[in-house]
Simulated scan of single mutants.
Amino acid sequence: MSYSPNGTSSSLIFLLTGVPGLESAHTWISIPFCCLYLTALSGNGLILFVIITESNLHEPMYYFLSMLSTTDLGLCISTLVTMLGIFWFNTREIGFNACVSQTFFIQLFTVMESSVLLAMAFDRFVAICNPLRYATILTDSRILKVWLMILFRGTIILMPLILLLKRLSFCRSRVLHHSYCFHPDIIQLSCSDNKINSVLGLTALIITAGVDSIFILLSYVLIIRTVLSIASPEERHKAFSTCISHIGAVAIFYIPLISLCFVHRFGKWAPPYVHTLMANVYLLIPPVMNPIIYSVKTKQIRKAIHKVLFPKGSQV
């Protein structure tokens, strides 16, 4: 394979990597990954289906949950083809434009998931701290505007990163270290100046996940203060219980994200497969776990799923 210095050529090819050092076990490794993908796709698809078809779930809380399931499906679909292609067929080659497109969608759905979690935190804040105005604040039209703003925000923030990727030149190795195209991975292979790309990538992370996490934390500080002012222990427990699912979703999104950042920054000593597995976990665990958390912890979702799966069965 020739290494032309032209980094924007349509003939430019990158080589994706499965799990470094464990290539001989790719067939076996593909089994749990395939199970995770099936769980994520079926779980989020089922959540979307019951929210759309069940009229009693046409409420702000469940609209936001449907947004979360949509972003999780997007994350899964963005990596599904390349990851399983490597494990099953050893299909490692990916064109430059396809690689850039995959990078964009992975980052877009990641930013959107962070934004949706923030919107869900605001939903819980209004429901607990200002319940009398809940229906007037979170109207259907405003929720639709929130969804469009989330999509617009992610696109505007990430578009400069994608455009700057296209100006880079690649004249050395083109072997990427993950099963999908990862922005930091791509820019490290460039033989041209990538400082702007690196700075913008870090800036995008800070003004999305970083800012969102601060506002989510602030919302829960206010929620806790309001709940603790409630005299009845039963009412306090009921208020807190409505937040458990969202807290779980926040944890399984931000903990793998922070862990991946630390591994990339301070884990140079770790075996290469640790970085790859952490990156895969970061993208797969939230889509897998979110439907499980909400179906277990949210009674209305659990009953709706039971109704769909067992239409003639007894109620949960």
Rank of each mutant, 00 (worst) to 15 (best):
S173K: 05
S173C: 05
V175H: 09
L176R: 00
H177R: 15
Y180P: 00
C181I: 09
F182T: 01
H183W: 06
H183K: 08
P184V: 01
D185A: 10
L189Q: 08
S190V: 04
C191Y: 02
S192F: 02
D193G: 03
D193A: 07
K195S: 15
I196T: 12
N197A: 02
G201A: 09
T203K: 02
I206E: 13
I206V: 15
A209S: 13
I214N: 06
I216C: 02
L217G: 13
S219D: 14
S219A: 14
Y220V: 03
V221D: 08
V221Q: 11
L222E: 06
I223R: 01
I224H: 12
S229L: 14
S229P: 08
S229V: 10
A231P: 03
P233L: 09
E235M: 12
S241E: 12
H246Q: 14
G248A: 14
G248M: 14
A249L: 04
V250N: 00
A251C: 10
I252M: 08
I252R: 01
F253W: 02
Y254S: 05
I255Q: 04
P256K: 00
H264I: 05
H264E: 07
R265H: 07
F266V: 08
G267Y: 02
K268D: 13
W269T: 10
A270K: 11
P271D: 04
Y273G: 02
Y273R: 07
H275G: 00
H275K: 05
